[in-house]
Each structure stands twice: as structure tokens, then as C-alpha cells.
């Protein structure tokens, strides 16, 4: 191994070290595989679904799972559950990832400013986050839906708004601690402008808790999006999504329990994959975790 490593440039060695650190953790690899699977399904969606997810057939209502032609059975309108699950993946992934990314971008930026400059800006920002945090997110979503109309993009917006304060808080708390570090002072003495100090030094060093927060927020907002669809505030029927499927299934729990089990299982697996990946990333991103 040493002979091989000696031939590589140091940068490549560093990359190799990252990869080895990642692959040595089974949970991280499983998580990555799971996330990759769901992302792939979300992208390919309609191409790989065995049947038309919206084709109704009143002759085949509530076909039980594992029967020919309908691997996961059919629903109350005779639609193929597997096809609806596959097509619905996109809505769930979109909601989870987009809402979290929007919230993270906005929240981290505001948190950096708030923690770095402190003063009046910080006070205003903290009170604003208090206000948003004091709203239960479902109420926020209902309110937003009643103003803008129910749709997936409005559900994502509501999710993002409800997630922003947490990102602001976490970033700010990290920044407050990091800005007193001597390496930040050293950067200042070196003539680094505030922009470089904030994004080049402070942000890089608070990445770990932020990655963790993202990995918590994505599954959270997948569930959140499902909740909103369940309540009829997200994706509108007949479009398939995991949340609407759950919502439709609740009337038939005694006749067709699998109808509720499969979308629930999909939500659980997607959530678990993201959480495991986040755990693994946290370990890899910390350069001190090499020993």
C-alpha cells in the first residue's frame, strides 16, 4: 500500500483517505446506496413504473400483493400500488431535498451574518426566528395553502420557512464560538476581509453540525411533505405521492392493510437512508477522525 501511496500526489492521497474513511463505515455505505436508489427512482419515475399509475380498473380493486401483474397489489380504484409508489417518489424527494436546501442556504447565510456581526442585526434576527419557531409548522402550511392555494411547491415553501430558524440558530451558535478562535484573529491580522473569514474559515469549521442538521432535516421534510399531502395541502389527487396514498388508504385499513403499509414503508426507508448517510458524512468530513 505504501508503494502505491507514494506514487500518488498528496491531493490524491487526501481523496483516497476520504474514500477509505467512508467505505469503512457500513452504515454510511448502506445509507448512500439507499439514497442513490431513491434518487434514481425519483429521476426515472415514469420510465420504470410497470403500469400507468393513474389508470383505474374497477375489475381489479384491492388485489392483494404479490399477485401476477400487481406486485404490491392495487388500491380502491384498481390502480397499481407499485407504479404509484415509484411515480410518487419524485414528489417526496423533491419536497425533502428542496425544502431543506432552500432552508439551509438562507438559514446558514443569515446565521453567519448574525453571529459574525452580532449587535442589532443579531437581536432582530433572533426575535424573528422566535416568531417563526412559535408557529406550529402545520398551521404555517395551512395558512400558506389558504393564501397561495394547495400545491407541492407551496408545501415546499412552507416546509422551508419552518426549517430556516433552526439553521439560523445552529449556524449562529457555531459562529459565536468560532469567531473567538485564534485562527480567525490570525486571518484578520493577515488582512482577510469579513467575507473570507466568514465563508473561508468560519463556515468550513461549522460544516459538521450543519451536515448533521441537513441529514436530520431532509427526512424530516420528507415526512413533513407526506403529512401535508396527507392533509390535502401538498400534491393534489390524482397525482401520486406517498402522503396522498397514505391519506387514501386510511378508509380501507381493515380491508386492505398493505395499501397503507407500502407508502409508510417507503417513507421510513427513505428517511432511514438519509439519516445513515448523514451520520457517515459527519465522520468523513472531520479531518480529525482519521486515527
Amino acid at each position: 500500500m505504501t508503494a502505491l501511496a507514494a506514487e500518488l500526489t498528496p491531493r490524491a492521497q487526501q481523496r483516497l483517505r476520504y474514500r477509505r474513511r467512508f467505505t469503512r463505515r457500513p452504515t454510511a455505505v448502506i445509507g448512500l446506496a439507499g439514497v442513490a436508489f431513491f434518487v434514481l427512482v425519483a429521476i426515472l419515475g415514469p420510465l420504470i413504473s410497470p403500469a400507468d399509475p393513474n389508470a383505474t380498473n374497477y375489475d381489479t380493486i384491492f388485489v392483494s400483493p404479490f399477485s401476477a401483474g400487481h406486485l404490491l397489489g392495487t388500491d380502491d380504484l384498481g390502480r397499481d400500488v407499485l407504479s404509484r409508489l415509484i411515480v410518487g417518489t419524485r414528489a417526496s424527494m423533491e419536497a425533502g431535498v428542496l425544502a431543506t436546501l432552500i432552508a439551509a442556504l438562507v438559514g446558514v447565510f443569515l446565521g453567519l451574518l448574525s453571529g459574525y456581526y452580532r449587535g442589532r442585526l443579531d437581536t432582530v434576527m433572533m426575535r424573528a426566528t422566535d416568531v417563526v419557531l412559535s408557529f406550529p409548522f402545520a398551521i404555517l402550511a395551512v395558512g400558506l395553502a389558504s393564501i397561495l392555494g394547495p400545491s407541492l411547491s407551496n408545501a415546499i415553501l412552507a416546509l422551508a420557512i419552518s426549517l430556516v430558524p433552526t439553521f439560523i440558530r445552529i449556524t449562529r451558535a457555531e459562529v459565536l464560538g468560532l469567531r473567538e478562535q485564534e485562527y480567525v484573529q490570525a486571518a484578520l491580522v493577515s488582512g482577510a476581509p469579513a467575507r473570507v473569514i466568514m465563508f473561508g474559515h468560519i463556515l468550513r469549521n461549522c460544516l459538521t453540525p450543519l451536515v448533521v442538521q441537513v441529514s436530520v432535516a431532509i427526512p424530516g421534510s420528507i415526512i413533513g411533505a407526506a403529512t401535508l399531502s396527507f392533509l390535502g395541502l401538498g400534491e393534489q389527487p390524482p397525482t401520486a405521492s406517498w402522503g396522498t396514498m397514505l391519506s387514501e388508504s386510511q378508509n380501507y385499513l381493515s380491508q386492505a392493510a398493505w395499501f397503507a403499509v407500502f407508502p409508510g414503508l417507503a417513507i421510513a426507508l427513505a428517511t432511514l437512508s438519509f439519516t445513515m448517510l448523514g451520520d457517515g458524512l459527519r465522520d468523513v468530513l472531520d479531518p480529525r477522525g482519521d486515527r
Binding site: E182, A186, N205
Partner: peptide, 27 residues
């Protein structure tokens, strides 16, 4: 101000007391 100081920062630098916290661990 910090902005006005920047050109002057060529002239002065500092060695810090704690060699553990004065180097950015990510760099």
C-alpha cells in the same frame, strides 16, 4: 477601520500563544 487597516497589515503580523487554536483545522 478594518478596511482601512488592510494595507497596513503587510507591515505587522502576529504569532499567537496557542499553537492548537491559531491554525485553522480545515486548512
Amino acid at each position: 477601520s478594518q478596511r482601512e487597516l488592510r494595507p497596513m497589515r503587510r507591515q505587522v503580523h502576529m504569532v499567537f500563544q496557542d499553537p492548537y487554536s491559531s491554525l485553522d483545522p480545515r486548512q
